[in-house]
Design a protein around this nucleic acid. Structure first.
Length: 460
RNA sequence: GCGUCGGUGCCCGAGCGGCCCAAGGGAACGGCCUGCAAAGCCGUACAGUCGCGGGUUCAAAUCCCGCCCGGCGCUCCA
């Protein structure tokens, strides 16, 4: 039984999907107006891993992640650059997808865009207006938050506690009945893109898009709604309020991933430690997988410490997995028919079932790596099963081994093969000076040689 | 201030009241292997006050209370 820490109840609860064997997952996607940064990576990776695990466990997953392609930031960037909102959104969405591809993040089954769902949003708002939980003013349409009894449930605050916070702020819009009321529809402002509505031209508020799209695609009572912990309030709280006010059944479970720190401090533009995914990937070819592994080795609900050091540590750890597979490949181990280590698979499932315990699941994988290495060294017959299980489980978490250039033949790099052979010959002749000279020469080209019981292997 | 999540070895980081004299990864040291390396394996030192102080319990890193410190949130329009 999979258990998940549900944000709404604040407890570890049994995960029972709406339909047995099927999981509907809605994970909030990005607002596309700038470079995707490491926070986006953590968010996307959290739900990517959740999805992969659910699939490994035999569920059919319907994963939806939206793209917010109209909002204040997009408008201001378009204005600043003298381009259009559409151009800004399309450019940064393409960049977002390209970067996520490099991190091996699976594409969601649906990637709805806010601008394509405006009609559904208008219909939804109409329901809220008709049933009295929303009202129109000259500046837009607002949700009457007081009409939602447990409005602050996700953040575990009462209405009054929330109102206290809101009261401390300057209330700009005198048309609003209550400071907590928020915009479902914003009346048109000069120079902004607008859509028609029964309340005049304007554009949708931030939260309504996710409600319209999640319920529209996944249906009432879909299973899991996820996002970064910074979205709990106001975004998810308001989404939920809209759904509740409309009498719709919203998500059954909520999960939220924690933020990350860089060099011990939160990542923010003001601290000037904001790192884009693109920059991190450019620093080292292994960084994509290292980042994945680093995230897997920290529980998704805990603040992650990221710096050059922790990233380097994760790179070394990925090498450990790769080295084992390289050795197995070179030894001619066939993985396809190998019997899996069921005890390890059970341990893995048990750890993952406890609120996606990826750090412990990775520990299971590394235990397998150690046992597999040991078996490979002694040509133990258990080796294929151990290697196959380690590969299966690592792949289930999205960190499959990568052994490019292993062996050499598939690279068709005859020149390097020839040098490796020359070194082997030199070794046979006990000409150590020549053998070392060749090894140094290869090293200068970024090629590492490993001697194994089944002969030398090389890789870049 | 309020809410929420956390504070575990040199670093990152698990830990489900007894299986914890605390997983796993990285770094270090010793041994085996190697012509020498690399990779790997075996072992060692690292936590002995698991932020601090109380309490509950036969038993607490794990539960409760208080305090200290950190992350996030406390509303788009400011």
């Amino acid at each position: 039984m999979l258990r998940i820490h549900d944000t709404l109840t604040g407890e570890l609860v049994d995960f029972i999907p709406r339909i047995e064997g099927e999981v509907s997952l809605y994970a909030c996607g990005p607002t596309v107006y700038d470079h995707p940064h490491l926070g986006h990576a953590r968010q996307a990776l959290t739900y990517d891993v959740a999805r992969r695990y659910l699939e490994w466990r035999g569920y059919t997953v319907h994963h939806v992640a939206n793209v917010t392609d109209i909002d204040d930031n997009i408008i201001s960037r378009a204005t600043r650059e003298g381009s259009t909102e559409t151009e800004v959104a399309q450019f940064w969405e393409a960049e977002y997808i390209a970067v996520m591809d490099e991190l091996d993040i699976l594409h969601p089954h649906d990637r709805p865009h806010a601008t394509e769902w405006v009609a559904e949003m208008v219909d939804f708002i109409q329901v809220l207006v008709d049933n009295g939980s929303a009202y129109a003013t000259p500046s837009g349409v607002y949700l009457r938050v007081r009409s939602v009894e447990d409005y602050g449930a996700l953040v575990h605050r009462t209405h009054d506690e929330l109102a206290e916070g809101a009261g401390a702020r300057v209330e700009v819009d005198p048309d609003k009945e209550d400071p907590l009321d928020f915009a479902l529809w914003k009346a048109a402002k000069a120079g902004e893109p607008t859509w028609d509505s029964p309340w005049g031209p304007g554009r949708p508020g931030w939260h309504i898009e996710c409600v319209a799209m999640s319920l529209g695609i996944l249906g009432d009572g879909f299973d899991l709604h996820g996002g970064g912990s910074d979205l709990v309030f106001p975004h998810h709280t308001n989404e939920r309020a809209e759904a509740v006010a409309a009498g719709r059944e919203f998500s059954r479970y909520w999960m939220h991933n924690a933020m990350l720190n860089i060099d011990g401090e939160k990542m923010s533009k003001s601290l000037n430690n904001f790192q884009t995914i693109r920059d991190v990937l450019a620093q080292d070819p292994l960084n994509g997988r290292a980042l994945r592994l680093l995230l897997l080795q920290t529980h998704y609900r805990k603040t992650l410490e990221l710096n050059d050091d922790t990233l380097a540590q994760a790179r070394e750890a990925t090498r450990r997995i790769d080295a084992m597979v390289r050795k197995a490949t070179n030894a001619g181990i066939a993985l396809d028919g190998a019997a899996r280590d069921e005890a390890a698979r059970d341990a893995f499932r048990e750890e993952m079932d406890r609120d996606f315990g990826t750090p412990e699941a990775m520990a299971v994988v590394f235990e397998l790596v150690r046992k597999a290495n040991s078996a490979l060294d002694s040509s133990d017959e258990a080796a294929p099963g151990l290697v196959a299980t380690a590969v299966e489980l690592a792949t289930a978490l999205g960190v499959p081994p990568e052994v490019p250039g292993a062996g050499g033949e598939q690279d068709g790099d005859a020149e390097i093969d020839a040098m490796v052979e020359a070194r082997t010959a030199a070794k046979a002749a006990k000409d150590w000076a020549e053998a070392d000279r060749i090894r140094d020469e290869l090293a200068a080209q970024g090629i590492t040689i490993e001697d194994t019981p089944t002969g030398p292997i090389w890789y870049r």
